[in-house]
Design a protein around this nucleic acid. Structure first.
Lengths: 150, 150
DNA sequence: TCCTACGATGGACCTAATCCAAGTCAAGAA
DNA sequence: TTCTTGACTTGGATTAGGTCCATCGTAGGA
């Protein structure tokens, strides 16, 4: 992730401790934190960091194309640092877990000309929805309901 | 759309003037109103209708499967009455216009087993993004498509 | 017509996000 | 090294979108 910091510096970003911490919090695969979670983790290292700064920094990372904004559920937006590898998302309808996935083919090819209404298409965002293994067990009454009744 | 009212009555829905007006506002193709827009249009016919009632009614229509909730940007959810005809959405990145579209094939088929992480898939939501004809004209200043002057 | 449980109301409240004026500090210049 | 300055940060106010709840109203069955 330090190459992100390099890229940002190369783009003339003024490097501050706040921006560094936010960029570092957003490292790794399958990371999809809300702005509030980013703030929480950043505040562990830099207790005085403000929410406004986290929002500003996330917004800049998004407009620089270094981070993707994903809103899978109409609630808080999530931020995905995996912006340089095209991918789609797989979301658990029950617990909200998100995984990055790589479908085959290009979904843009599936939209016939007659269905494009003259639009100039840029991309297609696909959200696969279903139940993750853990929730599939909890939700289906199956047999032997594994103890954790509420 | 009056068949919607019939179906609702058939399901034991208590029919009130408020519910009728909300259901009537949500009629037609390519209709994707926000809750606030629904409230505004409903209030033209029934000025005393409250926002809470609109939210309640929309929520019930969604859980009955009569209306779809779509959130194509991180802002207000939109409500799509075209719930009985499977479709995806085409969104203008500039003005936000939404069209219902029908891609060929089933996007679920494009996700290989190795990319499913054990999930039980239910469906795939696809959002095609691009510029509508009107915005494509507005945005491009003519020719010289402003390469990448960073 | 009367009852009553279901639905509507509006105002308080909540979360996510943005705005803003004032203070701070990174990094280039001297 | 110190100075300078404008970009950055702060925290508190504000906004948008949505939910909750106590109370009132009414659809529709008896």
């Amino acid at each position: 992730m330090s190459d992100l910091l390099e890229r940002l510096r190369g783009r003339g970003w003024r490097m501050t401790s706040q921006r560094r911490v936010v960029a570092e919090v957003l490292a790794g695969d399958h990371v999809h934190l809300t702005a509030d979670e980013v703030h929480g983790r950043a505040a562990q290292r830099l207790p005085e960091i403000s929410r406004a700064t986290v929002y500003n920094t996330l917004g800049e990372l998004v407009s620089l194309g270094e981070v993707l904004e994903v809103s899978t559920d109409g609630r808080a937006k999530r931020y995905d640092p995996n912006a340089h590898h095209p991918h789609q998302h797989l979301v658990c309808s029950h617990c909200g877990t998100i995984r990055d996935v790589h479908p085959v083919g290009d979904p843009l090819d599936d939209l016939p000309d007659g269905e494009r209404f003259g639009f100039t298409l840029a991309r297609a965002d696909v959200t696969y929805r279903g139940l993750c293994p853990a929730c599939a067990q909890d939700v289906s009454p199956g047999r032997v309901p594994s103890g954790n009744e509420s």
